[in-house]
Amino acid sequence: MRTLSVLCSALLGLALLGGGSPVLAAAASAPDAKYEDLRRFSQVLDLVERNYVKDVSRADLINGALKGMLSALDPHSTFMTPEEYKEMHENTAGEFFGVGIEMTLENGQVTVLTPIDDTPAFRAGVQPGDLILSINGQPTQELSLSEVASRIRGPKGTEVELTLLRTNSKTPHTVRIVRDAIPLVSV
């Protein structure tokens, strides 16, 4: 608990330094002012690595920061690790198995744009606007779109359980959908 308190105090100190500080204002006029934000990022990274309650790899921290930065832009921007990019490339270059849903992130919620015609999701009654609350019992709230898509995909003939909340409903419902080949339509 003390470690977390020290970390929070240090982060608060850095946040205060970042806003309205005469030290920062003087630095802004210096030639290397453009590196001030990178210095602040590096300090926070170092503090988390040294003081967080459990070990966290630097690569995970940086990947998380990059994902957060790009997700703050719009629902369509995302950062992919090399593994995620490889999977995305494989899935857009050929055939893949899943349920056939086009999704987006709206206000942090995974939302169905549309089920693709004549796919398992379409036949199961998934509708545009449905919120995907969980996949096989695991919440989607903290996941990126690519992570959600990866969890919905799987071997042909296997089942995936989606908990959905319909626009006009107050109670979620669960659908079990058997994965199948999803046709890729390139634009």
Score class of each variant (00 low, 15 high):
M1S: 15
R2F: 06
T3Y: 04
L4A: 09
S5P: 02
S9Q: 11
S9H: 08
A10V: 12
L14D: 06
A15N: 11
A15Y: 12
S21R: 01
V23K: 10
A25G: 00
P31E: 10
A33K: 05
Y35M: 12
E36K: 02
L38W: 11
R39V: 15
S42M: 13
V44C: 11
V44I: 13
L45T: 13
L47G: 08
L47I: 10
V48L: 07
E49T: 09
N51V: 00
V56F: 06
S57F: 00
D60H: 08
L66G: 10
S71A: 07
P75I: 03
P75Q: 05
P75D: 06
H76Q: 12
F79L: 05
M80Q: 07
K86R: 15
E87I: 07
M88F: 12
M88G: 09
H89K: 15
N91T: 13
A93F: 11
A93Q: 12
G94Y: 05
F97L: 08
G100T: 11
L113M: 11
L113I: 15
I116Y: 00
P120G: 01
A121G: 05
A121N: 05
A121F: 03
G125R: 03
P128E: 04
P128I: 01
Q138N: 10
Q138Y: 11
T140L: 08
S144Y: 02
E147K: 10
A149Q: 15
R153E: 02
V160D: 11
V160K: 08
L164E: 12
L165M: 11
R166W: 01
R176E: 01
D180T: 01
V185F: 08
S186Q: 13
